[in-house]
Design a binder for these strands. Structure first.
Lengths: 211, 211
DNA sequence: GTCTATACTACGATAGAC
DNA sequence: GTCTATCGTAGTATAGAC
């Protein structure tokens, strides 16, 4: 649709995203990235200073995408429970549409410590976006508790549970499919994941048994 | 306590577990393992045929440990909700006591596909233990639903949520600590994690509002 | 059971021609 | 902006002495 003709930089980011999601930072060779992007290995270094910078550029791109979609979901207003429902739907849609995203995000939690230390400023950029995303949920949860529609919970622990219920789920790959008996990404299972998560919220987070 | 004097094989497994948990399969070099185990690189191949076999041996060891602890928790009987509470407590205790475990388990979901294909029979062993662990929760959830103490839910999705709430949480490392504002492994946060997860279950999974 | 030595491959990164 | 060629390092794994 809005695809014109990706320049080399975008093409590299695209194939690197898929590879990093599947194999992790250490598991991907730049040779592989270059081949799939249709370039020589050395050409990568014209666009990105190092493997670590490429990885962080990929991660940044994904985080920005998630943040934009969540921003759209939050802006429409409504009661806290409605907004939380919309955030869950939006996040799950995003994760289901781009299967690499969930794995990349979850892996990023483990792999930030084996990046070369020099990565510096690019690290800070991804950290800032992460903080922005977390702040959206944090604010929403506190508002809901203040209004008395959510029961009193630890905000941090609740965010962790929500991430587990969404990002982990769609990152679980073959294991999750074994558990559900079919593809995590089938429209039926995506729909059901939304229902199950929202039902858990409505029963488990609501102060009264509102639905 | 029951530590006598670990033979080389156990020492290798021990240091490899920590390294694989931290860096992942591709991120660990056998040189590193050998150094930390106090051996030459080549000596590893006397105990394990290949890096993949070593990895699978580490994973198997961890899965067996989890399975044994969950078996202990399940055997004591009681109502489904009580048993589920005990399983959550037991699992969280296990993950908190051995910080490498959660990361290793979560990583194993992503990394099984970049193991050399030859690994064959050892793969099946870890799969069997995984199935046994899952069957414990599966049976318990179905029993609770049959008795009417759990509301009707998708068993697969619920297991995914429980894994996310426990394994993911303790695998989240620095990110989780940023979110909670203190170490995931402090006794206070471990205690609170148990409370939050069990509260979510009691409010969100129970058919009535039993506690 | 552990060692040294070695084979072969791949890695990330750089230099410099075009 | 992409290429070929190359550097230095580290990877897994094997052979064979002790």
């Amino acid at each position: 649709m809005e695809q014109t003709a990706p320049n080399s930089r975008d093409k590299i980011l695209e194939v690197a995203e898929a590879l990093f999601a599947r194999r992790g930072f250490a598991g991907v060779g730049l040779r592989q990235v270059a081949d799939q992007a249709g370039l020589g290995k050395s050409s990568l270094f014209h666009h990105f200073r190092s493997k670590a910078q490429l990885y962080l550029a990929v991660l940044d791109r994904v985080l920005v995408g998630i943040d934009e979609r969540l921003a759209g979901a939050a802006e429409t207003g409504g009661a806290p429970m409605q907004r939380l429902d919309r955030m869950v739907d939006t996040l799950i849609d995003a994760l289901a549409e781009q299967p690499a995203t969930a794995r990349l995000l979850l892996r990023s939690l483990f792999e930030e410590d084996d990046l070369p230390a020099e990565a510096g400023s690019a690290q800070e950029a991804t950290d800032r976006i992460t903080q922005r995303i977390l702040a959206r949920i944090d604010t929403l949860l506190r508002e809901g508790m203040k209004e008395g529609v959510f029961r009193p919970v630890s905000v941090g622990h609740t965010i962790q549970t929500l991430i587990g219920a969404t990002v982990y789920h769609f990152a679980s790959g073959e294991f999750g499919e074994l558990l559900l008996g079919r593809s995590l990404l089938s429209s039926e299972e995506v729909r059901q994941r939304k229902e199950e998560v929202k039902a858990l919220i409505h029963h488990g987070l609501a102060a009264s048994s509102a639905s």
